[in-house]
Design a protein around this nucleic acid. Structure first.
Length: 719
DNA sequence: AGCACGCCGACT
DNA sequence: GTCGGCGTGCTC
């Protein structure tokens, strides 16, 4: 008398699947979604394994949920993700498990014209009757929109019998994209790249492709051809993008190529719609999903292609809960599903370039701009050779170039990656610096808001009249530039020019900002002063000059990715010049024109940057990428962990309350908390980290379920 | 994640 | 005396 046992993984912070007895008549299969008793309540879970057992006194599975079954590939993905990130398997599962709430089916109502004429006629009613004159059935909303009336007019006509209601078939979750709809005209280069990408789609095993193309080279059109190829092969496609890149503009472009927009998945999509999409993806009805990171865990039935657009974007990094990088997970999912993966970027991350060089990824390059446009000419302005007017940040050379550009009726962009008015406020009398009380970073002056703001933690205080330290009045000076201060300078040296400051502080929110970006694109401004916000997105056809005010900003931040990030953002922002009819140029103000980042940027030789950066890291004994892990253990484990740490050498650490211990190649830090404390392990390579942690956990078994995080080495995210 | 259990301070 | 605050640990 053997019983069937189901090992059920529950989407909670649990690493082990729990065993339940399977009732005879349930007919469970691995991957089924089930309801099981857990403690005093009932929870949903997924059958991770089935076996024949002795039928011990286990609780029984309560029932099967009529939801999509998780495919073996998806279950493997969650297992792998949990293993890789050292997260409990249940937490990994929680990222992708979605259980449909039982909702009453709301029948969609359509209305249609009848023979009956309403007793009283009004202008609004007449418009409705005209719009409905063709006798077709429409939804209330549609008819109201077509006649430009409110829904109550329609209701009135229904009451009078002039319109009749009838049940409407539920509309499809997503429209069917047509791979042959609007084949774009491709340049020779794009064509060649598209052919290579499409050919690779049929390779076995399917490759990971790094599609690298300079700004304006038409990467999107190229990967759209791969999407078309996948659709023709009857496969589903996932396009991952940073949430902010999922714009109406992108959807229109997609619709221009495939006839309809893709299904969209991001945090703003309603839960009802998500549920329908989830189900539609599982049945294969939804063929293309464009989505933010979490779309990675949708239960695709026949996934053939994953595109990761702007693969270098940091938005792909999940920093709370389970720490994962969506780009890397996309590569893993591609492998598990047998799907081709395309990583697209104008400025790839260092690790993707390294992977391409090592032959793990196939590299396809679009070196030129589309439509005969040329890349902007980039020149450095050596600030050591400029005579800067006192209190000014725009050099005479740059000012002259701006004047010249404006005189020709073209636009210029002045780029400074610093919000606010001035990054530092200090007292002339006592040399007191205004620092954040929470994180001791400098407080940034925002003159417009009359406040000092911490860009780290959000702390805000009113700009003081007198020095907080010595009480002197009128002794405070603003040091260094922010975009607001540059705007002030611009009105002084280019009087009468229409200028605008664009940063994430822009008053009026995202809607206003979008409108202003459109206004810039339409040529309604002469000068744009902007932060990183203007580095990508909207195309500005009249912009022919980009001036970078401080190219060195960010190079000395201590972040191991500082060079890479700076290079990427400078490449993007200088690439804004000359995307319209006329060629563009960029002038880059710097104190260190021979710095590898600046030299590579000016020479237009990205290869050189990546090569040198990889070499520099190797020489410094750093890997191209590294990780930090935090383990949270219970108070009971504290002693054992400390005993283990005691045998290790101490190393200084800049973080308050952190004690760093351990050998130099794998230091171990201990942060004391009130009731918990953390162990932070830094290591040179991911593989080492895994080994190190596993070894550590073996000695400290109870800590195993409590490993909380693996994060990139990045002091910012760590703080 | 929820829920129970247990240990402390402060109230009808 | 007990009510309830939170901190801790368990759930097949």
């Amino acid at each position: 008398m053997s019983t069937r046992i189901a090992d059920v993984l529950i989407p909670l912070a649990l690493d082990t699947a729990y065993s339940y007895r399977v009732p005879e008549d349930l007919g469970l299969v691995e991957g089924d979604v089930v309801v099981v008793p857990l403690g005093t309540r009932e929870t949903v879970g997924v059958v991770w394994g089935l076996s024949e057992g002795g039928g011990a006194n286990l609780k029984a599975v309560s029932g099967k949920v009529d939801a999509s079954r998780l495919s073996p590939a998806l279950r493997k993905l969650f297992d792998w993700l949990a293993w890789y990130t050292l997260a409990p398997r249940g937490s990994a599962l929680a990222l992708g498990l979605r259980v449909p709430e039982p909702r009453p089916e709301v029948p969609r109502v359509g209305v249609r014209l009848t023979e009956r004429v309403p007793v009283r006629m009004t202008a609004a009613r007449r418009r409705v009757l005209e719009a409905a004159a063709d006798g077709l059935t429409r939804s209330k909303r549609e008819l109201a929109d077509a006649a430009a009336v409110s829904a109550s007019v329609i209701d009135g006509l229904i009451d009078e019998g002039a319109l009749e209601t009838l049940a409407l078939a539920a509309d499809p979750v997503a429209k069917i994209p047509d791979p042959g709809f609007g084949q774009a005209e491709l340049s020779e280069q794009q064509h060649e790249a598209a052919r290579a990408v499409c050919a690779a789609f049929h390779d076995a095993p399917p490759p990971v492709i790094l599609l690298e193309g300079v700004t304006g080279s038409g990467k999107t059109e190229v990967y759209f051809e791969a999407v078309a190829e996948a659709l023709r092969a009857g496969k589903q496609v996932l396009i991952l993008m940073p949430e902010i890149a999922l714009t109406a503009q992108f959807l229109e472009r997609f619709a221009g190529r495939f006839g309809v927009p893709p299904a969209v998945w991001h945090s703003g999509v309603s839960s009802r719609r998500r549920e329908r999409l989830h189900a539609g993806v599982a049945t294969g009805e939804v063929q293309v999903v464009a989505g933010a990171r979490s779309a990675l865990f949708l239960p695709f039935e026949q996934l053939g292609l994953i595109v990761v657009d702007e693969e270098h974007e940091t938005a792909y990094k999940q920093e709370d809960g389970v720490h994962y990088h969506a780009r890397d997970m996309a590569v893993v999912r591609g492998k598990l599903e047998g799907a081709t993966v395309i990583l697209a970027s104008a400025t790839p991350s260092l690790e993707s370039r390294v992977n391409a060089t090592r032959g793990r990824y196939r590299r396809i390059v679009l070196p030129e701009r589309f439509g005969g446009r040329t890349m902007p000419e980039i020149r450095a302005i050596d600030l050591k050779r400029e005579t800067m007017p006192r209190g000014r940040f725009i050099s005479p050379t740059l000012a002259f170039a701006v004047e010249d550009t404006l005189a020709r009726g073209e636009q210029a962009l002045l780029f400074l990656n610093r919000r606010g008015y001035a990054p530092l406020t200090l007292c002339r009398a006592c040399a007191y610096r205004y620092e954040c009380p929470n994180c001791s970073a400098w407080l940034v002056e925002h003159r417009f808001r009359r406040a000092l703001v911490c860009h780290h933690c959000g702390h805000i205080e009113r700009t003081p009249e007198a020095c907080r330290s010595c009480g002197s009045v009128d002794s405070l000076v603003s040091c260094g530039p922010g975009v607001e201060r540059i705007a002030e300078e611009v009105t002084e040296i280019f009087p009468g020019r229409r200028s605008i400051v664009l940063s994430s502080d822009f008053p009026g929110g995202a809607e206003r900002l979008r409108a202003e970006l459109a206004a810039v694109a339409a040529g309604e401004f002469d000068l744009v002063i902007g932060t990183q916000l203007v580095a990508k997105g909207h195309n500005f056809p009249f912009m022919t000059l980009v001036g970078v005010l401080d190219a060195d900003l960010g190079l000395a931040s201590g972040d191991p990715r500082a060079s890479e990030r700076t290079f990427q953002v400078l490449q993007q922002v200088t690439g804004r010049a000359g995307r319209g009819e006329k060629p563009g140029r960029a002038l880059v103000q710097t104190w260190q024109p021979t710095h590898p980042v600046i030299a590579a940027l000016v020479s237009g030789d990205a290869e050189r940057f990546y090569r040198e950066e990889a070499r520099a890291r190797e020489a410094a004994g750093l890997p191209p990428f590294g990780r930090l892990a935090a383990i949270v253990v219970s108070a009971a484990e504290r002693e054992a962990a400390e005993a283990h740490a005691r045998g290790m050498a101490q190393v200084a650490h800049p973080l308050p309350g952190v004690m760093v211990l351990g050998p130099a190649e794998a230091p171990l830090a201990v942060i004391r908390g009130r009731h918990r404390f953390r162990l932070l392990v830094r290591t040179e390579r991911e593989v080492d980290l895994q080994c190190y942690l596993r070894d550590w956990l073996a000695r400290c078994p109870k800590a195993c379920g409590s490993v909380r995080a693996i994060i990139d080495i990045d002091p910012q995210s760590f703080l």
